[in-house]
């Protein structure tokens, strides 16, 4: 049976943890976004070395499980002289590096979908490469890939359930602690799943709405 008093008691803690999960995911996504644009630009650059580096980045950060990447950060960053990173910093670094690789692939598709003539036009009008990237390419690529980016956000929020390995008290970790003390495993984890569903299902709805919009206008 559902134990309401215990549930209500745990709510403030879970709400706090929800904020941590959202903060970590959103900040991670924001940095991942910047990394993604940079890596996608490298992948499409005329310089072979940059293309290789971009490709290698994607290969490594998409190929290695996020959990292993987080373990790397947790165990190895202190060893290379960065001992005082707080857990939330380590978690954000981990999520940003990994999502950067996925976002780079999304953006590569977005950049390739922009008609070449537009870039020539920007060039002829005297826009610098940086201006072309930020004023012409990125805004269009975002619009074209918005459904995929929303989907990436869902994946990232789900992936953030692993950040407890770097010691961060996110939703999953807090639920684990609660379950360990109240012994209501099923109830606590169902509530945990419900929290994720409450964020992700509306996001998924937004994603498919955007997809339909985009499909119509395209």
């Amino acid at each position: 049976m559902f134990d309401w008093p215990t549930f209500l008691e745990s709510l403030p803690l879970m709400a706090q943890a929800l904020v941590v999960t959202l903060q970590t995911s959103l900040v991670g996504l924001a940095f991942g976004f910047v990394i993604g644009i940079a890596v996608a630009s490298m992948r499409l650059s005329p310089t072979p070395l940059l293309r290789r580096l971009g490709g290698a980045y994607i290969f490594v950060f998409r190929g290695v499980p996020l959990l292993v990447q987080l373990l790397f950060i947790y165990y190895l960053l202190p060893r290379i002289g960065l001992p005082n990173i707080p857990p939330i910093g380590a978690a954000i670094i981990g999520l940003a590096l990994a999502s950067g690789a996925y976002i780079a692939e999304i953006f590569r598709g977005g950049f390739l979908a922009i008609p070449h003539g537009q870039l020539e036009a920007a060039n002829l009008l005297g826009l610098s490469p940086w201006q072309t990237l930020t004023r012409i390419k990125v805004p269009q690529a975002i619009r074209l890939t918005l459904p995929a980016l929303v989907n990436e956000m869902i994946l990232l929020i789900k992936a953030s359930s692993l950040v407890s390995v770097v010691g961060l008290a996110d939703l999953t970790r807090v639920a684990q602690n609660l379950a360990a003390s109240n012994y209501l495993f099923l109830q606590t984890y169902l509530v945990l799943a419900l929290f994720y569903c409450l964020i992700n299902i509306p996001l998924a709805g937004l994603g498919s709405l955007l997809e339909r919009r985009l499909g119509r206008s395209a």
Partner: peptide, 22 residues
Amino acid sequence: EVIRATPFLVLLFLLYYGGPEF
């Protein structure tokens, strides 16, 4: 929709730790 919104780890917890309760 529910499974896609739930992290894999949470699904594992539900099955492994919550399972005995059902």
